[in-house]
């Protein structure tokens, strides 16, 4: 297995940020980039990253399992992560989360049978003032959610 030339270039750019003998510093970015390309981190993807950065595979796996945003099993095309932490909760995150669950017919940690959506519960996004909020595929944040904005968002995500 390998990654696309674009992904590899992205990883190389990250590697260049760190001292030459500290390639391992780029592991988080490499996993992120690999995940964007592959959708999730399969065993061979982790092994690839390990070889690419000259790390023991288990050390890469440690990183992949420590940080919440990596996916270690197949994941829907659109991962929706809702922050349910206290400030968001106070601002109505539970309502939004329940609405999403009901609308998608799945609970947190589940994927719709058509593989379109995965729903996750998240911890504080550091954006509490704009809650309720969710992240789409880790990288795009949607703020001030309400049932209406959720409807709109879901419609956009094919």
């Amino acid at each position: 297995m390998t990654l696309s030339a674009e992904s590899l270039a992205g990883i190389d750019k990250e590697v260049a940020k760190y001292p030459v003998d500290q390639k391992q510093s780029a592991v988080m970015a490499a996993l992120r980039i690999a995940q964007v390309e592959k959708g999730w981190l399969a065993t061979e993807t982790i092994e690839f990253v390990a070889d690419y950065l000259g790390m023991p595979a288990i050390a890469v796996y440690e990183v992949a399992t420590f940080y919440n945003m990596y996916e270690l099993s197949p994941c829907g095309r659109h991962k929706i992560t809702v922050c349910t932490n206290l400030p968001c909760q106070l601002q109505g995150a539970d309502t939004v989360a329940d609405y999403l669950k009901q609308k998608l017919g799945i609970g947190f940690g589940e994927t719709t049978p058509d593989g379109r959506f995965t729903l996750k519960e998240g911890e504080c996004f550091g954006t509490c003032g704009s809650g309720p909020l969710c992240l789409h595929n880790n990288h795009k944040m949607h703020t001030h959610l309400s049932p209406e904005t959720v409807d709109k968002l879901l419609d956009e995500l094919k």
Binding site: K17, M28, R32, Y67, Y70
Partner: peptide, 10 residues
């Protein structure tokens, strides 16, 4: 200066 992106760990 460089940016290092976290990935979900308080």
């Amino acid at each position: 200066l460089h940016a290092h992106q976290g990935y979900g760990a308080y």
